[in-house]
């Protein structure tokens, strides 16, 4: 569905990613992990069009998308969230999701059709408990994260990129987000999760790609990754026997 072929990215001579290649299959949840500076966020920025690769190809359903603008990539079916919670702070929950719906809605400039009903559907889907008229800036952190997901899925994507979506959340809140992710996946959405919280990533992902210093060091199932000596070395140093899981 999405294929990265030898993708590299340099910033003024500093290499952030070097020849990274992997594929995402339709309907899977792929985890991307790695320590700070591994290039995870750079990768998500490349896949969503906010950065262009220095070299390599990003192929979405057989078409190269590495030169497309972010809004164009959304229309093509890839939506994302951000590492720091990013919502329209001075808009209410309803409008945040409503804005997310607009690009995928082709009902004409001045018609609203059934968009209102769709907003309420999405609110229910991601279990936002605050009133839809609550301003985003007044929301607690966990609701902000849900609102981010809601805004992202409003575009009706086929692939959802989640950048550290449970960062700053409690275990219970993370579990709730995990359930939402699984539910979206069961409904047919392909998902890539970038995460620092390894336990969460291992629990939710079906397959994991590990990056270190901008290079892919391995990929496999969560069980395989948790036993991989290279991964143990990156996270705990040489000789460490502790299991990631």
């Amino acid at each position: 569905m999405l294929e990265l072929k030898n993708v590299s990215k340099s910033f003024k001579g500093l290499t952030a990613l070097l020849n990274v290649s992997f594929e995402v299959q339709r309907g899977e949840i792929l985890g991307l992990m790695g320590p700070n500076g591994a290039g995870k966020s750079t990768l998500i920025n490349l896949m969503s069009g906010f950065l262009r690769p220095t070299s390599g190809e990003i192929i979405w359903k057989g078409v190269n998308i590495e030169k497309l603008k972010p809004y164009h990539i959304v229309v093509k079916g890839i939506s994302r969230t951000f590492q720091q919670p990013r919502v329209f702070l001075n808009m209410d929950i309803f409008d945040n999701i409503y804005v997310g719906l607009l690009p995928s809605n082709k009902s004409g400039l001045f018609k609203n059709n059934n968009l209102k009903e769709r907003v309420f559907e999405i609110i229910k889907k991601v279990s936002i408990s605050n009133a839809h008229s609550t301003l985003a800036r007044d929301l607690p952190h966990d609701e902000l994260r849900k609102l981010e997901i809601a805004r992202a899925i409003a575009a009706d994507p086929e692939l959802l990129l989640l950048d550290e979506i449970v960062s700053g959340l409690t275990v219970e809140e993370s579990n709730e987000i995990g359930e939402i992710i699984r539910m979206l996946n069961r409904a047919g959405l392909t998902i890539i999760i970038i995460e620092h919280v390894m336990k969460f990533l291992m629990n939710v992902s079906q397959r994991v790609v590990v990056l270190d210093h901008g290079e892919k060091i391995c990929e496999g199932s969560p069980e395989e990754i948790s036993r991989n000596p290279k991964v143990l070395d990156v996270y705990f140093g040489k000789g460490e026997e502790e299991n990631l899981a």
Binding site: Y71, F82, V87, F88, M91, V99, P103, F110
Partner: peptide
Amino acid sequence: STKYGKKLTSIREDEILSQAAGIDT
């Protein structure tokens, strides 16, 4: 008050997020 207006307001609020929401800012 239309969809166009909501898009404009979103650009004022956060241009990068508007692009991520699929708006040709």
